[in-house]
């Protein structure tokens, strides 16, 4: 499956400086598992998704290991990576309209996704595409095969994108805010579909989202990112019931739904640190309600119940995680 070991991404910005967008992330996505990667804008969650897909912006530097079914993707040439994308790893992004070519029939786009990676005939590809469209819940897929994307609603377009993404039975699906552009009743349909398909096909999903509600609904595990680092990960049940990192707790507390009575919502004061010059020690320290002396040095990553991890000095009594360094 997907194993991300101590991945770091540096992106060049003006003035010869670098943004440390992802800083030492270790994360795994198992077969048939949905892992929610959560964080606020600029925390590096989409950059990490790009690092796995081999689609980082020009000039970006990647270190660490991305293993897919035991194969190190780091050493691949551009051509080899192209063959991996869409075949072993697939992407579903936020805007389905941008993912589909407006001038081509939707069915043909799914069929093309198959033929890009498999040597099969047109007719066979078409049959498989119709089957996929049916599997993602497009009504009357045979007739709608030839319709262009604009004849489909946003939710239906996202179904088509998912069909194309799953066309070659990928090991891992990167879903980057897959339902953010959709209405809430449609979002529920798409989330249900994603979970249903991954359970059936055994595809693992890395679900990048800002919405903790979405994570609670469909994810098995959660990883919380802050300023380029995963500060806490574990099963959804454990992390939501008893968040150990102060950032995770603050994030959960600031959700309006957690407070059914009116009254002020707890807020996180201050700003996300400048990642061209990240603070030494814990990156959340400047905004943390429970900050203390030791936070000026980087906190240890310790193991929590149920195979979770947290990076915080408040929990340094827990057993440390052996650092997998490649």
């Amino acid at each position: 499956m997907l194993q991300i070991n101590d991945v770091r991404v540096r992106i060049p910005v003006a003035g010869g400086r670098w943004v440390e967008a992802v800083d030492g992330v270790t994360l795994a996505v198992g077969s048939g598992e949905i892992v929610g990667l959560v964080g606020e804008s600029g925390c590096g969650k989409s950059t990490l998704g790009g690092a796995v897909m081999g689609l980082l912006p020009g000039g970006a530097q990647l270190s660490g290991q991305v293993l897919l079914d035991g194969r190190d993707l780091g050493g691949l040439t551009a051509e080899e990576y192209r063959r991996v994308r869409g075949n072993d790893i697939a992407l579903v992004s936020q805007d389905p309209s941008a993912s589909l070519d407006p001038t081509f029939a939707v069915g043909a786009q799914v069929a093309e996704a198959i033929r890009n990676h498999r040597d099969i005939g047109r007719r066979e590809a078409r049959e498989r595409a119709v089957e996929l469209l049916r599997a993602v819940g497009i009504p009357d897929p045979g007739a709608r095969y030839s319709d262009p994307p604009h004849r489909f609603s946003g939710g239906m377009k996202q179904r088509v994108v998912i069909a194309a993404a799953l066309a070659n039975d990928p090991s891992v699906l990167i879903a980057d805010e897959p339902t953010t552009a959709l209405d809430v009743t449609i979002q529920a349909q798409i989330l249900h579909l994603l979970r249903d398909l991954t359970v059936r096909t055994g595809t693992g999903v890395l679900m990048i989202t800002h919405d903790l509600g979405v994570v609670a609904q469909v994810c098995d595990r959660i990883a919380v990112m802050y300023a380029g680092q995963v500060v806490e990960q574990g099963t959804v049940r454990d992390v939501f019931a008893d968040p150990l990192h102060p950032y995770t707790r603050a994030l959960l507390d600031s959700q309006p739904a957690a407070h059914h009575r009116s009254g002020d919502l707890p807020v996180i004061l201050g700003q996300v640190p400048d990642l061209t010059d990240p603070p030494a020690g814990c990156r959340f320290a400047a905004r943390c309600a429970r900050v203390h002396d030791r936070c000026t040095t980087a906190p240890p990553v310790v193991e929590t119940r149920g195979g979770g991890r947290v990076a915080c000095w408040l929990h340094d009594a827990l057993p440390p995680v052996a650092q997998e360094v490649s």
Binding site: Q187, L212, F240
Partner: peptide
Amino acid sequence: LLDAVPIPEPDARLVHVPLSGDI
């Protein structure tokens, strides 16, 4: 609509689709 809203609580699993069809 209330059923479809994702609530950030560990017991709020999506068990069924609250509303089928498009708007």
